[in-house]
Amino acid sequence: MLELRLVQGSLLKKVLESVKDLVNDANFDCSATGFSLQAMDSSHVALVALLLRSEGFEHYRCDRNLSMGMNLNNMAKMLKCAGNDDIVTIKADDGGDTVTFMFESPTQDKIADFEMKLMDIDSEHLGIPEAEFQAIVRMPSAEFARICKDLSSIGDTVVISVTKEGVKFSTRGDIGTANIVCRQNTTVDKPEDATVIEMQEPVSLTFALRYMNSFTKATPLSNQVTISLSSELPVVVEYKVAEMGYIRFYLAPKLEE
């Protein structure tokens, strides 16, 4: 028996909106630790890892570890039917072939339940080693989204370079080139407006903008994004999910042939 009650149901809506275009089907894993997902996109270039810790739920009952295969587009369709202020409860029976999403309005005057069919998914689970990063950039998520969107109108790839001068996003296309430099800025009124660059050594990596733009669909989840870079390692683009967890996107770099 599984029963997870999330008062801030809009978080789950936002999570689904941010992954549904990247991954079609995925297994949600439920354990004492929390509600999690790890899935690769169909071309095995990008990976999404989600963790919503059990402490973040108002009520969290998971009698035994459960893996539920879901079509993310269908799950997003159902969660779209929840109001932004609704409390969302996820319910499933051990060994059952459905999951129920229950939506309660804050005043309890409307209660809806949506039952969705589960599916069997053969998913590969990848071991992600703890890595030391050469550079970690924390910046406003809306700024990062704007940069990725702007650059993708010029080119297909972005070179992200971190030096002591700051972080540079560059692209090149048929019509010309573009460079955007963001410097460290911690003298801001609100902490979410800060740009913080922790650099162990300079690093420069190239990534497909198509994927970066897809990751920025998680922007509504968090005011800040963290971009962790290391030579010839996948970049990690992380958005915190309130106080309860994170959504991390991994993207393999493009390499010189």
């Binding site: 095995h44 270039v45 990848l126 080693p129 996948p234 393999a252 493009k254 010189e256 042939e257």
Partner: peptide, 14 residues
């Protein structure tokens, strides 16, 4: 010329 590397080069299957 640049080639997109797959993730499985970096992460192993569990």
């Amino acid at each position: 010329r640049q080639e997109q590397s797959p993730l499985t080069i970096y992460f192993h299957n569990l």
